[in-house]
Amino acid sequence: MKRLADICSKFYLGLIFLFLYAPIGVLVALSFNESRSRAHWSGFSLRWYAELFKDPEIMKALYYTLLVAALSAFLASVIGTLGAIGIDRMTKTQKKIAMNITNIPVMNPDIVTGVSMMILFVFAFSLFNAGSLGFGTLLLSHVTFNAPYAALAVLPKLRSLDSRMYEAALDLGATPRSAFFKVIFPEIAPGIISGALLSFTLSVDDFVISFFTTGAGVNTLSILIYSMARRGINPKINALSAIMFLVVIVMLYIVDKRQRPKTEKL
């Protein structure tokens, strides 16, 4: 009876994973398809992987995607970490207000965030009679949706921090600056790093907000893919995603392996 339940639960999980991985499998398989068509398989080939790097449109989109992700993750981490430090010191009511403000971009539907920022940018351009949607507005919007996540990743670390440590450092003659960098920073660094990584992935994966806040000539991969969807996705994009997917899996696997013994020790 117990064996039967065990087999059933394994089968069930297997079905769930089949469902989650089937489209990814199809996509990876198509990246090796000789022909351009989705409909039939005409033989194994690495052709799309070779051509990928010669495609200026895709390479440019990849460049913008990674650049926006790296810059916005960095800026969001700086602003968000400072925000978290300040919020941690606030009184209860102030904290409540700050947390509500933090939750607006997190809870607001992407499409509303996107259109509202587009309105702001266009409004500001008409006010100053200059500027247009493009890389700058794209970056501003990404920093905006990433900053709350960066702050939320640091806050729990600050909460579990013993404030007497900082005071002790001051008592022992450390300047506030060195007390921060030698005592507080090492303690909250894991939170900052996980916030930055989360920001980076959110930024790479974002489509909706970018769609509304970018301008002509500045495409991220998501926007390029969406515009291609009507005429059919170029197999080169499949090849690129397969490579990116592999890189992410390897990275996640390394992080996972490193974290495991650490958590067991605690």
Binding site: L20, Y21, P23, I24, V26, L27, T201, V204, D205, F207, L221, S222, I225, Y226, A229, I233, I237, N238, S241, M244, F245, V248, I249, L252
Partner: peptide, 12 residues
């Protein structure tokens, strides 16, 4: 799977 672009996963 969440690390694969969601447009591509959907398109697939």
């Amino acid at each position: 799977p969440m690390w694969m672009n969601f447009l591509l996963r959907t398109y697939s």
